[in-house]
Write a protein that binds this DNA or RNA. Structure first.
Lengths: 343, 343
DNA sequence: CACGCCGCCGCAAGCGCTTCCATTCCCCGC
DNA sequence: GCGGGGAATGGAAGCGCTTGCGGCGGCGTG
């Protein structure tokens, strides 16, 4: 294994100079640096991460904790975070909580605290105060993605704003009976997100002078199938007859479209549906949706972290609200006049 | 930061004994071990990964390289690998090649070779001889998942067997005009997988005494939309009139079902479709499919790696063929008699 | 009873870097 | 011409563990 002093010998300098030349820290004459770099390249030298970490106290590695892996949102923020981390020269080590029952505590006690990472990004995870504290006690910065964590900088979107926008879109098309299929509050580990999204629907309705009807809200988990089932219920109830529905995720929304189709309803003529996410399948299904940009969220989380790691300054925990955007496709239109009794 | 000698002092032993007690290596009296463990717990001591790595030369960290993240197969093997690695006390650091243009070389030169991992798992990646060699030169074991790599132990499924099984299922139902929608050989970075799957279709047909008709094969990339498009072509051609189709992935197969529906065809009455994967959406669409078990593939890959790391013995590179299994749902049935001209 | 073996433990030498401090040398300004 | 300051480099002390080696008892065996 070629080490730093092999390089030093070959370049005719001291190990101290090699270290400075290769890391870019400290003053090294240009000619010397060149010589060192050549020698290193010729020998195929790469610094030993562990030795370097031991000496500096920095691992150049950050931990990302996700509750699931098999979901578009998580893999997307992962992708964004990975890309940005790589640009900073950092590794990403992945912790997935969806495995065995007790993996959550294992992750925290055995891995995150094991001095293997400089910081952690928690994606859509509600961390307990102890979990946050134990991380902070080790001096490890922590940032959240997808929902606020007490006393921790977070990047997320405005969950009420997002459904409000979706609902306003429907309202502006002339819909007045608008349903909502949202996350089941208890079924998901992700904060108050489902509740917030429901509030956005209610707020928009109220602002338009319509009282949201509780029976037009259907809970579901964030899967296509669950959206399908909820839609069947909603559309099967003759007392409801919504002309449009805002759905808290694209996957569920696609389930809704499929359900409508199976019931002989035309989307958007008989039912307008708008989702949230801009999932990769949304264009295929012509789904109108409010795009959030999870990759960007991952990137911003990394940037936040890097700032904390570099300056080690105590800025106020800046909670970043990221933009979202309505994307109109073919699943929304004006309501069919004949289905609307004249008022 | 509490270090090993804090623990040693508190337990009234030497640092050597603490190290041995906590790591389980070497002989330590049971009473002593207990005392050390108590002291460590009270102080909240965790070993410094970098110091430990520097001393032992092991990082307890393995790198997993994937070409994409947003695909069911990859996240599934990732999930399996992660779970098993955690059981072994290893970290998983993730490298995703789908980012910027030159990330592939960056990953190899800057990260994998940076002594940050003990070994690497390459998922569905065709590594060049140089890439393999540079890893081996560093003494880093390497195992592949999802396709063979020259001189590297690999876990995968029998790609020809899998489509053969799918085709035989259709044959046994009485179908004789069976199309195939498969991966485009050039579009994917994943070996000869598409070609092998095509061969399985051809082989099964030939064994049944039917000559595979090239015009019944349609290339596609592995997405729902691409499957949809291919199906529209296949089903729109009046000269073809297949009664069944074997599709190289479930996502594509779902696209096929959707296309059939849009063309007014009933699945399975007018068209039987069988996919490959057992994707999470397959049950929802009633898709008959040949299940592969990517999580299991991830787990086995880890086990292979651990064996290589522990024994450091030169077994022959055992190429593991993992099982697959036909799962019959509602997208396949006997062909409609009236559509089959009597022969 | 004596010898030897073995289990248990401490000492101290690294592991391969980074960085503080000291040293040398050169350039500049007075 | 001389002193001061800064740039360039080397020496060496760690960073916090692991582990080979050796000492010291206790126990089994001849």
């Amino acid at each position: 294994m070629v080490g730093i002093d092999d390089v030093a010998r070959r370049a005719g300098v001291s190990t101290a100079t090699v270290s400075r030349a290769l890391s870019g820290r400290g003053h090294v004459a240009a000619a010397t640096r060149e010589r060192v770099e050549e020698a290193a390249a010729e020998l195929g030298y790469v610094v030993s991460a562990s030795a370097s970490s031991l000496a500096t106290g920095r691992m150049r590695n950050i931990g990302v904790v996700v509750p699931f892996l098999n979901r578009w949102f998580y893999t997307s923020v992962l992708e964004g975070a990975q890309r940005r981390l790589m640009q900073y020269g950092y590794d990403l080590t992945l912790y997935n909580l969806s495995g065995a029952s007790n993996e959550r505590s294992t992750v925290f006690e055995q891995f995150l605290l094991r001095q293997r990472v400089d910081a952690v990004i928690a994606v859509s995870l509600e961390l307990s105060a102890e979990e946050v504290d134990s991380l902070h006690a080790l001096g490890k910065p922590l940032v959240g993605v997808g929902g606020p964590i007490r006393g921790v900088p977070t990047v997320s979107i405005d969950d009420v704003g997002v459904t409000r926008l979706a609902t306003e879109h429907l309202l502006s098309l002339g819909h007045t009976v608008i349903g909502h299929i949202g996350g089941d509050v208890d079924a998901e580990m992700s904060f108050h997100m489902p509740t917030n999204r429901r509030h956005g629907w209610e707020d928009a309705l109220r602002e338009a002078g319509l009282e949201p009807r509780p029976e037009l809200y259907f809970p579901a988990v964030f899967t296509m199938e669950s959206g399908y089932v909820a839609a069947k219920q909603m559309l099967g109830d003759p007392r409801l007859r919504p002309t449009a529905v805002v759905v808290a995720s694209d996957e569920m929304a696609i389930g809704v479209i499929l359900a409508a189709r199976d019931m002989g309803l035309d989307v958007p003529r008989d039912l307008s549906v708008v989702g949230i996410d801009d999932h990769e399948l949304a264009p295929f299904f012509g789904l109108t949706t409010v795009a959030q940009f999870p990759e960007q969220q991952g990137e911003r989380a990394v940037e936040l972290l890097m700032r904390e790691l570099d300056q080690s300054r105590e800025d106020e925990p800046a909670n970043l609200q990221l933009p979202f955007e309505l994307i109109v496709r073919s699943s929304t239109s004006r309501p069919r006049p004949e289905r609307e009794p004249r008022d």
